[in-house]
Design a protein around this nucleic acid. Structure first.
Lengths: 187, 187
DNA sequence: ACGAAAAACTAATACCATTAGTTTTAATGT
DNA sequence: ACATTAAAACTAATGGTATTAGTTTTTCGT
C-alpha cells in the first residue's frame, strides 16, 4: 500500500554496471547510492548489505552466462557446438568483465540457488562432450579442460596477459581446435 | 647510523603470509601492522602505502613462480618438460594461493620490473614450445593455450569450481596430454 | 655520554559499511 | 478530496579502513 521507491533489481543492475565499467573494486554501497541519487543507508531498506548485493551479482552473472551458452548451442552439435559455446562465453566475458568475475568468485558458504544455476552450465558442457567417444572419467577430465581453457583465456585476456601482437580470437580458436583434435586422438 | 626497526622485506613477507592464509581481501595495512605489533602509520616509514605493498607482492610472486618453473625444466625437454613445468605451476598456486593472485592481478600502470620478470616466464614457455614443429604464429597460440590451461585450472580449483569426485591432478595431466597430442596432429 | 637520524607514536582527516531512530512521502481506503 | 499508515529515505552515530602531519622515542655511531 505505501510509498514505492527503489527496488533490489535497480540496485543490483546499478552494481553490475559499476562492476563492468569501473571494476569489481568499485562496487561499494556509497558508489551505488551516489549513482541512484540516494544516501547509503537507504539501500538497507531493500538489501541486507554489500554481501547480499555481491551474492545477487553472482546469481545474475551465472544466469546470464548460462543463457548465452545455452542459446549458442541450440540446433548445433559436435565441434560446431563447442566453438559456438566458446564464442558465446568470450562474448559474455568481454561485455561483462565485472559480472563475470562474480560468476567465478562465488559466495563462501555455498548458495543453493547459485549452485543450481552453476550446475546448469556444467551439465550443458557435459552434454556436449558426451558425443565424443570418451570414458565416463575422461568426459569429466575433458569438461574440466574445456572450462579451464575458457576461464583461463578470459581471465588472462582481461588482466592484459596477452601482449604479443597476435589476434587473440585466433589463439582461442586454435587452442580449442588443438584440444578437440587431441581428444579424438588420445587414449 | 640511526635506529633500526622494521624493513620492507618483513612487511611484504607478512603481507604474503596473510594473503596465502586469509585471502587477498585480508591484506590490509592494519592487519599487517597488527601482525608486526606496530601501529599502522609506522609502516609508512618503510613503504609508500598499500599500493606499493601490493606491487611488491606481485613482483615477489612472479619471481618465485618463475624460479619454480625454471628449476622444474632443468635438464628436461619436450613433453617431459611441459609436464614438469605444469606440476611446478600447480605446486606454487596450491602453496601460495594469495601470492599467485597477485601474479595475475598486476599493478595498473604497467610496472617495468614486474613486466621483465613476467616476460621471463613467457620466454621460458616459449622456448619449450619451440621444440614442437609449429609455425611462428602457432607457437604463440600454443603458448597462450598452455597458459590458459594452467591459469584456468589453478583459478577454478582455488575457487572450488571442480566439484565432481574425480582426482583433479588426473584432470590436469589428461588435459595437458590431450593438448600436446592435438598440437602434433593439428594443421 | 651524546647527538642525530629515523623509527614509532598520537592525533586528525576522510573514506567506507552498518545500525538506530526520525522524518517524509505517497498509495490506498474512506 | 483527504486522512491513514506502511515503508522509503533521511540524519546521526559507531567502528573499521588508509593516509598525513607533527611529536616523541630510540639507538647507532662517534
Amino acid at each position: 500500500m505505501p510509498r514505492v521507491g527503489l527496488n533490489i533489481v535497480q540496485i543490483v543492475q546499478t552494481a553490475a554496471d559499476i562492476a563492468d565499467n569501473q571494476g569489481t573494486e568499485a562496487v561499494t554501497l556509497s558508489g551505488i547510492a551516489r549513482e541512484l541519487s540516494v544516501r547509503p543507508p537507504s539501500l538497507f531498506n531493500h538489501v541486507k548489505g554489500l554481501p547480499q548485493i555481491k551474492r545477487e551479482l553472482s546469481l545474475l552473472g551465472v544466469k546470464k552466462l548460462f543463457k548465452r551458452m545455452n542459446d549458442a548451442t541450440k540446433e548445433k552439435s559436435g565441434d560446431e557446438a563447442i566453438f559456438a559455446i566458446a564464442n558465446a562465453y568470450l562474448q559474455f566475458t568481454r561485455e561483462h568483465p565485472g559480472l563475470y568475475e562474480y560468476t567465478i568468485a562465488l559466495p563462501k558458504p555455498k548458495d543453493e540457488e547459485i549452485e543450481r544455476e552453476s550446475n546448469k552450465i556444467l551439465t550443458l558442457i557435459l552434454t556436449l562432450f558426451h558425443t565424443y567417444s570418451l570414458s565416463e572419467e575422461n568426459v569429466i577430465h575433458a569438461v574440466r579442460g574445456f572450462r579451464s581453457i575458457l576461464h583461463g583465456f578470459s581471465s588472462l585476456e582481461q588482466k592484459g596477459g596477452f601482449g604479443m601482437p597476435i589476434e587473440r580470437n585466433d589463439s582461442l580458436h586454435y587452442m580449442i581446435r588443438v584440444f578437440l583434435t587431441g581428444l579424438n586422438k588420445t587414449e
